[in-house]
Amino acid sequence: MTKLKKYWIHVTLVLISIIFVGPFLWMFLTSLKTYEETIQVPMIWLPDEIQWVNYQIVNEKFPFLTLYFNTVVVVIATVFLQLLIASLAAFAFARLAFPGKNLLFLTFLGLLMVPGQIFLIPHFQIIGVQLNLIDTLTALVIPNIFSVFGVFLLRQFFAAIPQELEDAAKIDGCSSLRIYWQIMMPLVTPGLVALGILTMINSWKELLWPLIVNQSIEKMTLSAGLANLIGEHTTYHEQVMAGAVISVLPMVIIFAFFQRKFVESIAQTGIKG
């Protein structure tokens, strides 16, 4: 590459980085102002005095520690149960023969296309009302652990394992359960990690369902908790921004550390759509 070309690539990337990061810097600056500074005319870039107290106020109004704890619990539970259920089914579809297998598989394929939101009403009926799980973390986990997408992803990984390995295990008298757990699972680890990360992101970002099924702030995830920051009668912009910063910062730090690993894992998911 020529020097000039490199120069232009840098210029472009710097501009793009500003577009992607700039808003977050603005968010941070706003979070350090007083309420009146946020609506001061003409606009000011920096506060007169840095208002760390906004973070304290918003933290008193919203139990961020609880919200984080809830989110972590929900995410871990969702990822773990989804991986377990999906890998069991994926193993069966990839390595076992049983009547009706293809038909079942096609039915599941159809479900892949269905947007989750259309199930909100019946889910609220079943999980919220009939199982009486309104205002519980369990209610947040249940709808997300049955992942058709996960089955598709993992099936490819299970299918790629050489038949000889399975045959050898069978000769040694291994049961299907042992083949699945002790021999196959370690071999599909990259798939599990990739699915785990995707599930993690989706479950971390989910907004609509937690908003509907849980009422008290103590049982909300970060996502739904943040949505609650907008009050109708008063909105303190600086507190809203402080709350947003609290939600962003830990993820950015984690991501900065694991950037490479993260990209590699995602790479696994795009293999064949």
Partner: peptide
């Protein structure tokens, strides 16, 4: 249990 005005009645109706 505080819920902002925008969501308050929705939640109340549901629960």
């Amino acid at each position: 249990a505080q819920t902002p005005w925008g969501e308050f009645w929705t939640k109340l109706d549901a629960t």
